[in-house]
Amino acid sequence: MDITRLIIVAVGGQGNLLSSRVLGEAALLSGVPVRMSEIHGMAQRGGVVESAIVFGDAESTIISDGEADLLVGFEPSETLRALNKCNSKTVVITNLSPLPPFTVAIGKGKYPDLNKVQELIRAKTSKLIAFDAVALAKEAGNVLGVNMVLLGALAQTGILPLAVDNIKETISTRTKKAFAEVNLKAFDLGFAAAGIA
């Protein structure tokens, strides 16, 4: 089976580990081989969390520079920072709502201009899908649903070897009951947004 490589980057606390978990479970449900890895050493202390998910017939659980087919960024400057994982054929999805790192507040560095971020990514990769996922998560009823919004957008690209229904089924069975409905709504909003972005 062909190999699809996905990188997800986020800031600790944004819930990207749950989204990779959902994708992994959906792959298991669909009978698609899946391997993932994550680096979350001090994620709870505000660092970057990176997950790699490899679908298809591969043994490796990590993804080298330039080898991601898909990059999903939960935070715009982190999406830009992860551009080294991309090549000219990579499809990139990013949330546009920034979480400036603390270094900016203490005057060590300047947060990149959001238009410039999009321009750069667009010029270097095959496609950029960019929108404010936080706004959509709020619309769905939970600001913390950014991960589900972005999963929706990811599903919309059709690049993953997973049926949309299997992802949705996993969301309803694997996320907390109280949130399942809101999560599915967030997923749908992200799906729709990616269609027009």
Binding site: G41, G47, F102, G109
Partner: peptide, 8 residues
């Protein structure tokens, strides 16, 4: 250059 995001 993207501002660093060290753990804190």
């Amino acid at each position: 250059e993207i501002p660093q995001r060290p753990p804190n």
